[in-house]
């Protein structure tokens, strides 16, 4: 009787080892690998996280257009500060890199192009782009705009002091007056000042205009601010 009981007890425990031991082996294998490889490969495992995004990459070459022309009787929320009427920054949709957010027009030069935030390939293929390290109109700082000399900025070769540049955005229209033009080396650090504390527009393109090849010089067109409602940036700077 006890023999049969022992046999049955043995039977009831018997199959469990075929489940438990493989799981133990599985955990043991990864433990051994971890102990053996972690010191040498931990840096690669940490770095591997840099190669993955949180979502699948979008390979579309389409761009987002957030530009809606401001009509004459539209009202954008403003604030009054220091006897100045400023645009409420919270009412403005700040463009993301690659967005078309406006248009730039120089009638006297025949320049009429879409204005993008960012000067990447898609922006310069479809219009002209603001260097993302500079500012957008209304911020009271330097706006640096790039474009190709054989497409949208070909008209800059006709730029002369006194000509008017108009930038249209969803939050307002801005005008600038060209003050001077200059040819400088592409690596010149004196060509523009991104730290200037007054609103100014700088447009640049490759020079000479009709030369074939990648040139090392750039043609700069400088313009001073004339009109357009400034943005209340105090909130941003205070925070």
């Amino acid at each position: 009787m006890s023999d049969k009981k022992n046999r049955h007890r043995h039977k009831s425990h018997y199959g469990k080892s075929f489940l438990i031991l493989p799981i133990v082996f599985f955990m043991g294998t990864y433990l051994v690998l971890y102990l053996a490889l972690a010191p040498a490969f931990s840096i690669f495992f940490s770095a591997s996280g840099l190669f993955f995004a949180d979502f699948e990459k979008n390979y579309s070459t389409e761009y987002d257009n957030i530009f809606v022309p401001v009509s004459e009787n539209s009202t954008i929320p403003t604030v009054d500060k220091n006897s100045q009427t400023l645009l409420d920054i919270n009412a403005i949709e700040y463009p993301q890199y690659g967005n078309q957010f406006g248009e730039i027009l120089i009638e006297d030069c025949g320049v009429d192009a879409k204005l993008f935030f960012g000067d990447g390939d898609i922006a310069l293929r479809n219009g002209v782009g603001i260097y993302s390290g500079s500012f957008i109109p209304g911020y009271g700082r330097t706006i640096l705009v790039a474009g190709h000399n054989n497409t949208y900025f070909n008209g800059l070769k006709n730029a002369k002091p006194g000509q008017i540049v108009t930038i249209k955005t969803s939050y307002g229209n801005y005008t600038y007056e060209i003050t001077k033009t200059a040819v400088k080396n592409q690596a010149s650090r004196k060509a523009f000042d991104l730290n200037a504390d007054h609103e100014n527009l700088i447009m640049y393109t490759c020079y000479p205009f009709d030369e074939l090849g990648l040139t090392r010089e750039r043609y700069f067109v400088y313009a001073k601010y004339v009109s357009g409602t400034q943005i209340d940036t105090d909130i941003v700077e205070g925070d």
Binding site: P208, D210, E211, L212, G213, L214, T215, R216
Partner: peptide, 22 residues
């Protein structure tokens, strides 16, 4: 292709350094 393009479009303004850089 550049040589052909320059000839077909009668491009005068070609700098050898800029072309080589391209």
């Amino acid at each position: 292709a550049l040589d052909k393009y320059i000839e077909e479009n009668n491009i005068q303004n070609v700098d050898s350094e800029s072309r080589e850089y391209l």
